[in-house]
Design a protein around this nucleic acid. Structure first.
Length: 436
RNA sequence: GUGGUUGUAGCUCAAUCGGUUAGAGCGCCGGACUGUGGCUCCGGAGGUUGCGGGUUCGAUCCCCGUCAGCCACCCCA
């Protein structure tokens, strides 16, 4: 048995690379539309960067080890601590609000499953220095556009939005004690795939009385603001905590993304540092894991980097998105690897052909030719398999006339043209394809 | 980390009750085809049946272990 890639790590064959490349390029393009600048940091970091303040959940899954210098290090499981360090180091000199994005390869040591590997690429977009609801709307809008740009619409994608401030206030208002909050979060997180009686049993097992449980179920099931407002008396003060989220909804509707949004207070992001808006993107059929998730973390930069700046952001991995694109037939078809194939009839034609290759490559064309003597038919077969638009056939007869045979493999036409005119003709036919 | 389930050619799969030399399609290579591509026809390469052990006259098939994939749990970048 040949050595394989480590569990959870991927080999990218050209077809896989084409998809990954499309994803990454599309992300860059969309982030740029929102005025975001790209940054990056080290893939390997000191272990303490993650054990210090980051979510406790992540620590157990760190891909960490001791390096040859005896340092405790970890492959980065998330980008936020690195971002916090970088922003903190130059916080005074950076114009706010900061709009930065990165597409790091992230790692975690955990048993893999579909859509969940030990390594993935993740679009990270963060907006730092703005506490207002328009920043929240911008981030959510960017997350939506980052999948919309692949051709996915509101029929394919749903966004579920919640707010920690609102949820916390509601739980307190209905009588959930701080000690009971973690369990309530757990139950909320699983509410969609758990029978109701199981959820009720777990909640009552934590000491919550029946009426409180009923109200909790009402909170987690509310999908509109009016449903939430109708949950009963005594919640007005708590519901007032929902104002920022309401305004975020309104802004997103004005931006034209209303069709994508669902209110869902059952969204429980694992990372403990979220302080306000939290959201997740899912495929509308509910077949896959979350495509993206994020939220507001106004206290994290102070805890992590020492600068007191409000911030929010989201992450979006390439694995689930890639699966969704494949499922929907939106992955790239077989790509053409060359523009022009050069075919020689005899060995004597080779110097002529190599000169053409140099000239066309200098002009920006993607050029290939047979590396060993072959029948012309065979060479053209290869040209076809490569997806070449054009083929140039050079033989003794052509050379005698100072010409070459230009074949358009797509149009199935051919004509003999002067050798000196090749470059211009090829450039004209390929047109825009050259500049890309 | 726990439990379940599946591993046969590069890919998708077949192989009777445990029985001879493990097959097919696609893909790949070559030929028909030494001045013209996609099609067609012909041929070829490619397998320690994931790996290791056990039962048996005989194991792709039964048993145990292990590794890997998938599913659920845990958790969720």
């Amino acid at each position: 048995m040949q050595p394989q890639a480590l569990p959870g790590f991927r080999d990218f064959y050209p077809a896989d690379m084409a998809l990954r490349d499309r994803i990454v390029r599309t992300w860059r393009r969309v982030a740029a539309r929102y005025g975001f600048e790209e940054y990056d940091g080290p893939p390997l970091e000191p272990l303490e960067l993650y054990t210090a303040k980051s979510g406790e959940e992540i620590v157990g899954q760190l891909y960490s080890f001791v390096d040859k210098g005896g340092r405790d290090v970890s492959l980065r499981p998330e980008m936020t601590p690195t971002l916090a360090r970088m922003v903190a180091a130059r916080a005074n000199g950076l114009k706010k609000p900061i709009r930065w994005f990165s597409i790091p390869q992230l790692f975690r040591y955990e048993r893999q499953q579909r859509g969940r590997l030990r390594e993935h690429f993740q679009l990270n977009c963060d907006l730092i220095g703005e506490p207002g609801h328009l920043a929240d709307a911008e981030i959510v809008a960017l997350a939506i556009d980052a999948v919309r740009a692949f051709g996915l619409g509101s029929a394919d994608i749903r966004v579920r939005l919640s707010d920690r401030r609102l949820l916390t206030a509601l739980l307190e208002a209905v009588g959930v004690s701080p000690a009971q909050v973690p369990l309530v979060y757990q139950v909320f997180d699983k509410i969609r795939r758990t029978p109701e009686d199981v959820s009720v049993t777990r909640l009552s097992g934590a000491g919550l009385p029946g009426p409180t449980i009923d109200r909790l179920l009402g909170i987690v099931r509310a999908r509109t603001w009016s449903e939430l407002d109708g949950l009963g008396a005594g919640l007005d003060r708590a519901l007032a905590q929902g104002d920022p989220l309401r305004r975020t909804f309104e802004a997103l509707q004005a931006l034209g993304f209303g069709d994508y949004l669902d209110l869902d207070l059952g969204i429980v992001r694992g990372l403990a540092y979220y302080t306000g808006t939290v959201f997740e993107l899912f495929d509308a059929r509910g077949e896959l894991r979350a495509i993206s998730g994020g939220g507001r973390y106004d206290d994290l930069l102070r805890a992590l980097g020492g600068v007191d700046l409000p911030a929010l952001g989201f992450g979006m991995g390439d694995v689930v998105l890639g699966e969704l694109l494949r499922d929907r037939g939106l992955a790239p078809d077989s790509v053409s690897s060359i523009d022009v194939f050069l075919a020689a009839i005899t060995q004597d034609d080779l110097p002529h052909l190599l000169g053409l290759a140099r000239e066309l490559r200098d002009a920006g064309a993607r050029v290939e030719f047979a590396l060993a003597p072959q029948a012309v038919g065979k060479q053209l077969k290869l040209a076809d398999a490569r997806g070449a638009r054009l083929a140039l056939v050079v033989g003794p007869d052509d050379r005698g006339r100072g010409e070459v045979m230009l074949k358009d493999l797509r149009e199935k036409t051919q004509e003999s043209i002067p050798r000196d005119a090749v470059r211009d003709r090829v450039a004209r036919i390929l047109g825009d394809e050259l500049s890309s």
